[in-house]
Simulated scan of single mutants.
Amino acid sequence: MTIQLPSEIVVERFLPTIRSMLAAELADRGFSQREIATRLGVSQAAVSQYLSGEQGGEERFVDDARTRATVERIADGFDAGTMDDYEALAELLELVWAFEDRGPICAIHEEEMPALAGMGCDLCVRGRDRAVQAERETLSNVRHAVRRLSNAPKVAAHVPNVGTNVAMALPEAEDETDVAAVPGRIHAMRGGLNVPSNPEFGASHHVATTLLAAADADPTVRGAVNLATSDHLLAAVPEGMEVVAFDAGYEDRRTRLDDRFADGVPRVAYHEGAFGIEPITYVFGTSAVDAVDRAIDLVDHAES
């Protein structure tokens, strides 16, 4: 992978496409190739290539209605004498800015630089934003954690019927929208795990609630994963690792968790279920990956 600036995409793909489209529009309005070349700041030979179709341009720009509208507006302005070069430049810059913000330029940039995937060009448009960086790192951590969990062969047997989830909170998280997890939860299927989609913020309720209580009590705790409570799993908790039980009821659960974590956050917290509530064990870590690694260790010991 190479580092590529969005300006390179503008110069190498956007600008030739715009020039080709403008050349065609101006030719349709009776402009000569020399006049078109003067307007576009290119050679007459380049205009000839544009008009012959030798440089068709990037389809994502050509097919975008905003591109067509801008090109037609500029061509009409040049033809009527109501738009000068400065105004045409302003029109094109507005189009570039729109395309860099979750538009075609952004899409092409993400293809050229996979490290930008999912960022919506926030880096390019808004600069280095620490909050955005934290969100990106959190989502990346959850994705890695989910892959580790999916590749652990013994985990499926310990997934609750309601599904499991892997979650990680942002620093100083305040509510569920600050916690990244897998929408729809992860379910056991044919001896493996089915992960329905990539992690998103606000995708979890129960795991997020438990994690937020832990993070409030101890800010170093930012990751959690839930498994089905069983005697084998609890017996696999290493000696010296604190385990805390709590009531399974949903009513006032956050308040009760705050009370249980007041003297410190354990690495494992569980409940034994209730009417309509499946027994669940939560494993905490400093990150989603850390929590999943701890959970896999527990499962391996429980199965050995």
Score class of each variant (00 low, 15 high):
Gly184Pro: 04
Cys121Leu: 08
Asp300Ser: 04
Glu200Ser: 12
Thr177Arg: 14
Arg260Tyr: 07
Gly53Glu: 15
Val225Ala: 10
Ser204Gly: 11
Glu251Gly: 01
Ile105Asn: 00
Phe261Glu: 03
Ala98Lys: 07
Arg260Asp: 03
Glu12Ile: 02
Gly53His: 15
Val292Ile: 14
Ala214Lys: 09
Pro171Arg: 08
Glu110Arg: 09
Gly240Lys: 14
Glu72Thr: 04
Tyr282Cys: 02
Ile186Leu: 05
Gln44Arg: 15
Thr138Tyr: 13
Glu111Thr: 15
Val179Gly: 02
Met168Ser: 14
Asp258Pro: 00
Leu92Ile: 10
Arg128Leu: 13
Ala173Phe: 07
Ala167Gly: 08
Ala27Gly: 10
Arg143Gln: 14
Val11Trp: 08
Val225Trp: 14
Ala27Tyr: 12
Leu234Phe: 05
Leu227Gln: 05
Ile277Arg: 03
Glu8Phe: 02
Asp218Pro: 01
Tyr270Met: 09
Ala188Cys: 06
Arg254Pro: 00
Ser48Pro: 05
Val146His: 12
Ser140Cys: 06
Gly285Glu: 08
Gly285Gln: 09
Asn226Glu: 07
Asp297Met: 13
Ala288Gln: 07
Asp63Gln: 12
Tyr282Phe: 15
Ser32Asn: 10
Val179Leu: 04
Glu251His: 01
Gln49Thr: 15
Arg190Met: 08
Asn198Pro: 01
Ser43Thr: 15
Ala228Lys: 15
Asp84Arg: 08
Ala228Pro: 00
Glu200Pro: 00
Pro153Lys: 13
Gly240Ser: 13
Gly103Tyr: 00
Arg136Ile: 13
Trp97Ile: 05
Gly120Lys: 07
Val10Tyr: 00
Gly57Met: 10
Met21Ile: 07
Arg68Val: 13
Asp247Val: 06
Gln33Val: 07
Pro196Met: 05
Val162His: 01
Thr164Tyr: 06
Gly285Lys: 02
Ala181Cys: 12
Ser43Ala: 15
Gly223Thr: 13
Arg39Ile: 15
Pro279Thr: 06
Ile36Gly: 02
Glu112Cys: 07
Ala274Tyr: 03
Ser32Val: 10
Leu5Val: 06
Thr286Ser: 09
Pro171Phe: 05
Arg102Ile: 01
Ala24Met: 09
Asp290Val: 06
Arg102Cys: 01
Val62His: 09
Glu112Pro: 00
Ser204Lys: 11
Gly285Leu: 03
Ala188Val: 03
Leu211Phe: 08
Arg254Gln: 11
Asp84Tyr: 10
Leu123Thr: 08
Arg19Ser: 11
Gln33Ser: 07
Glu87Asp: 11
Ser304Val: 15
Glu8Ser: 09
Ser204Trp: 08
Ala235Cys: 09
Ala131Ser: 15
Leu92Tyr: 06
Phe246Gln: 06
Ala288Ser: 05
Asp63Val: 12
Ala288Pro: 03
Val182Met: 06
Ala214Phe: 06
